[in-house]
Design a protein around this nucleic acid. Sequence first.
DNA 1: TTGTTTCGTGTCAAGTCCACAATTAATGTG
DNA 2: CACATTAATTGTGGACTTGACACGAAACAA
Lengths: 228, 228
Amino acid sequence: MSEYPVSYVAVDVVAFSIADGDLAVLLVERGVEPWRGSLALPGGFLRPEEDLLAAARRELWEETGVDEPVLEQLRSYGAPDRDPRARTVSVAHLAVLPEPVAPLAGTDAAGAAWHPVGGVRRDALAFDHGAVLDDAVERLASKLEYTALGTAFLPEEFTLAELRAVYETVWDRPLDPGNFQRKVRGAADWVVPTGEQRAATRGRPAALFRARKTGTEPLDAPLVRGTV
Amino acid sequence: MSEYPVSYVAVDVVAFSIADGDLAVLLVERGVEPWRGSLALPGGFLRPEEDLLAAARRELWEETGVDEPVLEQLRSYGAPDRDPRARTVSVAHLAVLPEPVAPLAGTDAAGAAWHPVGGVRRDALAFDHGAVLDDAVERLASKLEYTALGTAFLPEEFTLAELRAVYETVWDRPLDPGNFQRKVRGAADWVVPTGEQRAATRGRPAALFRARKTGTEPLDAPLVRGTV
DNA sequence: TTGTTTCGTGTCAAGTCCACAATTAATGTG
DNA sequence: CACATTAATTGTGGACTTGACACGAAACAA
């Protein structure tokens, strides 16, 4: 075995949430070289006895304290020169956190913070994290079409208008409230009404729902981007 | 850097083709321990100056001589005990080869051969390759829905009946010839008629087509499994 | 010529999509 | 307290899509 080349394997996490109506991504400021001072995705090296997903969960936990995140593998990046220190392959992961956002910062490194995705300068991110972020945004948008991932942005109980706002934010396009409602309620076993209503701010109060399918479970009736 | 744990990074290839009307996967017989004598996916260790995709292309080339395959990353596998020799993370790839299948064997190891996917005993494959194969089949079936990947199974010129046979094989379900034809021709810029016809074997000769979109380019009008 | 086979087009009922109108249920304002 | 305003739902109808199946077209074989 020892005649084969070894590598470092890192695990990075692209964690999304919605902050102030914008899609936001969790970034840390690097405290060590290389790229000291630059923004980067939270991540670190795979430990000897750790599964890939477990490593991603640990990294996310270190920055946010979140225990059971919606988390799945995105893809791996292995350009030979992506880390100037040594040959490093990174396995990127995609996470979605509910809006009452994670404790903003500070257990580690130089602190984590949420950044609106539209305002992040891709070429200012460390390593190839700009490309990773683009891939993650694209994947997120398409996962919303055919999985129940959208509800992962919301607290346990939510209104359909809040869910619609998630879609409008990620897809960056307005959706018809009536048609959206029909589509969502038509997807078998996705959301169930609690019977309660949200205290009205303005207008007719909305019914509260709870998700029965979560994370990346597939929907039987996809919400197609460009229609809905 | 040296205080961090190192790993071996392997690249595996799940190469599909169609042989005798069955979906087939390329497997090698392992010539060394562990799993000596078992069937396994073609693969090997990432070399120091090699990109992940380049490594997968090299592994596939070593077994088949194919130069410019349709090839993309599938996902990575990193369970701590997946390789008894050492901590190894494998980046699996998905390839599709045209039917006039690759030179069957023998440059390396104990020779490669095509196996009908339905007949492969998953638990007899080396490492976690049974799970990798299942993931690849699932991914392949869904890629056929919304990308132009289907034509990668066929030679440069093909009939729509041949393309339909690809779909029927991968999805394991009969499709309506008329509706299939309309769907495919309706997808913008996917296939263009050459004007030629295939010499008839039986029945009316079929028109020949050439693919304008190939590989994993998305289709504007997806062929939804369960409909078409 | 007639039958057989497969390719390709036509047809139509049923269903879905989607823009927009109507209804419902709350709040805020004179 | 009417009544405008806001927002959540529900209704509607025309356009489009889907899918089962019929039909016409173009070859070969007997």
